[in-house]
Amino acid sequence: MAHGNSPAAAHHSGERQHPTPATYAKIATTLVLITMLEVGIFYVQALHSVVIPIFFILSVIKFALVVMFYMHLRFDARLLAWVFVGGLVLALAVVTALIGLFHKGLLLRP
């Protein structure tokens, strides 16, 4: 659905230089390493009681790396970051609230 009234050339004010392919490669390596770490943790039985926070933190890091560098949100206009983070936070809030309402023992202990 890419169409509109605006100039076709992609130059946006307020957008800084995108990362170089070398940076991209570093990010890719980090993503692969974190995923390997996650799969490794999965096979350690002793850690199964604490997997939720560990996996949560690790996937948040991966998520953030892709959004900030591959989707170059870090280098784009601030407004775009607000738009996306707004949707994301709202989604997280709704998911958390719904899970809290259905699994009362999990989140909400009256």
Partner: peptide
């Protein structure tokens, strides 16, 4: 805003897809 219309549209769409 200096942001291309289509790019803003895409980001709003992605925010919506989060939901």
């Amino acid at each position: 805003t200096g942001i291309d219309n289509r790019k803003l549209l895409m980001w709003v769409f992605l925010a919506s897809d989060c939901l």
